[in-house]
Design a protein around this nucleic acid. Structure first.
Lengths: 145, 145
DNA sequence: TATTGTTATACTCTATAACTATA
DNA sequence: TATAGTTATAGAGTATAACAATA
């Protein structure tokens, strides 16, 4: 057999992160998927427009750390569902100013509340200091300094 | 605009978990993908067989918390790549006993070392107690008590 | 030449149902 | 009837290159 008997995949961080992310993703998906038929990138776009107001696709792409092709498709779908509108920037006609429709804003308010509730649910069992540390560590894993 | 100005998707746990998981996953993928052409479920199977020796697909499925259809395909691929062999259990001919080949064991040893190195790399900047807490919290998110 | 956004394409991953063969 | 494993299929997510329009 192997000499490295102490290594345990069940303790391997990429594995734990993947399982935890998948679990939480599935849980929260039930809000935006079943209620609004949205996909992951779509609610991310909605969240950004809801929080920051008018943005270009590029802005969202940078903020959400999501590739422009994903954003492009999500925007297209959200427009089709009447959750956002876009208008060409007259000063630079390559860009489009994206903003939520009234309907989109309602969806944002609803989802944002659901997100906050869900976040509370899963952090409930931990101390505030522990949750703060968790977030800090995750951010550091995402963006190694 | 919205009244809930304090909600920030950049602090939303499912979002942070997903980004961190994706980042780590990509990093570690370079080991098993580029070197051995393996996919995620494949190295998970290799890791389990490497650690626990002979197992059935069902055992792996339970241990790895991975659906049997994924395991089935991964096993098929690993067999094709000559990383594992299977033999029907004579006592219950529905089951197959899976085990790594000599080649598979070498791959396991190599990947396991790489995994440990990678795990050290990303936990290096944190205190041991912090890493322990991180793992504990991730496990609790995966399996809410 | 560079940038914004789109389209095409391929690959990976996930989820589910239907199936086989055995028990 | 139940279980181990397979196959088919669709949906979701990701990655990249090539492109049009504009700057």
């Amino acid at each position: 057999m192997s000499k490295n008997v102490d290594f345990d995949i069940a303790e391997f961080l990429p594995y734990l992160l993947n399982q935890a992310a998948e679990q939480c993703s599935l849980d929260f998906q039930s809000y935006y998927k079943e209620k609004y038929g949205m996909l992951r990138t779509e609610w991310r776009v909605v969240f950004h427009l809801g929080k920051y107001g008018l943005m270009t696709a590029r802005d969202v792409s940078l903020k959400a750390k999501t590739h422009k092709t994903k954003i492009s498709r999500a925007v297209h779908e959200l427009e089709r569902k009447d959750f956002l509108v876009r208008e060409t920037d007259p000063n630079d006609r390559r860009q489009e100013r994206l903003s939520l429709t009234t309907r989109g804003k309602k969806v944002y308010d609803d989802l944002q509340r659901a997100a906050r509730d869900y976040d509370r649910t899963i952090t409930d069992t931990f101390k505030d200091s522990e949750v703060a540390l968790l977030r800090k560590m995750l951010k550091s894993l995402i963006d190694p300094a």
